[in-house]
Design a protein around this nucleic acid. Structure first.
Lengths: 255, 255
DNA sequence: GCGACGGTTCGGCGGCCGCCGAAGTGTGTC
DNA sequence: GACACACTTCGGCGGCCGCCGAACCGTCGC
């Protein structure tokens, strides 16, 4: 047996609980969260969250950094984040589109622009991907390769892209978008592009985790560079609320 | 919430059991298995297997075809197979290399050549990938693109590759090999290449599931086409045995 | 029609799991 | 040194889960 069924089961079990899955999804924003934040976010007590985190770290799903009286955790690495994302995509693929009204409001902003681990997603991300393709900067039809023009475009922005090297992270990768069902730019170039956008303040963090906002400066830059229209909905943000979810947990844990 | 933690947990739970994980891994060979075969393969009773399969089909992990008094199941689609494979890779990444002696014998053949869902893996797969790169048939350093020469090479073999089309399956994809830790060729081209190898009888099924054997004809073809040395270990195959595994199950299900 | 056979359903058993409250540990602050 | 705070450990509770044996249901072969 090349690979042990037991270890696969053990690893999958780390995500096979509603609370732990919620933790994984929260961590998809690429940041490190404290144990307390995650407890509040998932609506669970501190002891429970603590046990979950220990288990996930032990199992190799999360990495932790202890700092003073805080315990920070993040997804172990890019591969792990990718797995969580793929899992979310597949798990959501067949789901009926039942969503609360509050959810619609929240997801509208997320659908517009958000981060996906370390790159840009939402309509902003898919729009950029399409624009890059249109201009011949991404080649090979699927957009899984960077053309010489593409490389020049990045260089013109002052982006130093890592030399592509077999076995390392792909330079460009097409990542199917949850909300838009079209690809957005992932891979090393996607991460670099996001870093650049943040550095030049073309984007800024939104009200909720993972949500991002295109700044005025960014709107001009995206229009100039890619002919991209990033008109904002410009609605005031509702305060984030913690909702109880104990009642829904038992129901959800069953197939 | 863009994606529901409950559905992620529910989906992950489908693989979070040793028996179900073993079923997934078995199905990675791309074939459809009957319920009985899987019950025997996983060392579990028929009722148990039946319940597992129903749950996995219901949850969208497997697809089933009922034929007479048989129930055939397979992984739902390529994305699902990919997920299982990635999960296996990550789950195995940190594991201590504890393996039984029988396991070593078995995995030696698998490490030499096997199928990975619908393409070739093992040293045969990684060797071909490296050879294709060396000859400039795969471009873009990571080998995520086919060069014009590469396309010509496939054409010369009589392989009709699908036109690459955004949103469809990538033409070529580098898939990290479990045993060799180097990439092998996946994607549509990988699948086509495997089909061709089987059609010309360059490869033949091995003694165990997923295992493949390079034929004499294949050995010559691979040497001529790619300068690839595929010397076989040529050891007689041990008969496959069903081992009891009930005792190890409880231990494995705990973190 | 009958028996063999693959698969399913049902009832029940043992075991683990996820949760919490209470108490404990270590860190930073006044 | 005392207190607040973030987190952990412990004990216990309710609940689901995975398994099996027994009985049952279709299908196939004779």
């Amino acid at each position: 047996m090349t690979i042990d069924a037991g270890s696969v089961a053990r690893f999958a079990a780390l995500m096979a609980d509603r609370t732990r899955a919620a933790i994984c999804l929260a961590l998809l924003d690429g940041r490190a969260w404290t144990a307390g934040e995650l407890a509040r976010h998932t609506g669970v007590g501190a002891p429970t969250a603590s046990e979950h985190l220990s288990r996930m770290v032990e199992g190799g799903l999360l990495a932790e950094v202890r700092q003073g009286r805080h315990r920070y955790v993040r997804l172990r690495d890019r591969q792990t984040a990718q797995l969580v994302e793929d899992l979310g995509l597949l798990a959501g693929a067949e789901e009926a589109p039942r969503r609360s009204l509050a959810g619609v409001r929240a997801s509208r902003a997320l659908a517009a622009a958000r981060t996906c681990y370390d790159h840009l997603a939402g309509r902003l991300g898919t729009g950029m991907f399409a624009a890059l393709c249109d201009r011949g900067l991404l080649g090979d039809a699927d957009g899984t390769a960077l053309t010489p023009q593409g490389r020049a475009w990045f260089a013109g922005l002052g982006c130093v892209l890592p030399e592509p090297d077999a076995g390392r992270r792909p330079l460009v990768r097409a990542c199917l978008d949850w909300t838009d069902r079209r690809p957005h730019l992932a891979g090393a170039a996607g991460a670099e592009l996001r870093r650049l956008c943040a550095e030049r303040e073309w984007i800024a963090p939104g009200a909720r985790p993972r949500e991002i906002r295109v700044t005025d400066r960014g709107r001009h830059a995206f229009a100039d560079l890619l002919g991209l229209d990033t008109a904002a909905p410009a609605e005031p943000e509702a305060p984030r609320t913690i909702r109880a979810r104990r009642d829904t947990n038992a129901a959800a844990s069953r197939g």
